[in-house]
Amino acid sequence: MSEKNKASRVGGWLLLLVVMVMTIGVVGTGTARAEYADVVINNYSDEQGMRPVVFPHWFHRLRFRCKVCHADLGFKFQAGGNKIKMSNIIEGEFCGACHNGEVAWSAENCDMCHSGKEGTKTMVHGSTVQGLVSPVGIQKFTKDEKSQYEK
């Protein structure tokens, strides 16, 4: 066997190994059944020994229009893109504009925001991109559930 062939064979197996590792990584990320648009923010939480933050979009959307946070308070349309620290919140920025004990409960209730599973990545859950790239852990509807939603 020539050197060139040997090299390409080694390269091929290496590529296979990389793909396998990546696949295991994707499949191993667990089941995707979070509420649509729930945002997990884990910029600093894990390294600080706190649970990551889960932001329920739906809960806030029932009470406020998008523009209140995304225009007036300056939240970017990007999961983890605001680089929020507790110091910001205590100073009344970002979440702290409402979570100050006046509009909503204050930041002392640590575990109501920091409620995510350790190691959960920063991302928007239930997004189309997530569904296309890693369609894992899909749970099919049972007949009962299906009829309930289609009423």
Partner: peptide
């Protein structure tokens, strides 16, 4: 829901 920690009281 798979992302909240069931062991966390706040959940």
């Amino acid at each position: 829901d798979g992302i909240h920690d069931p062991e966390n009281e706040g959940t």
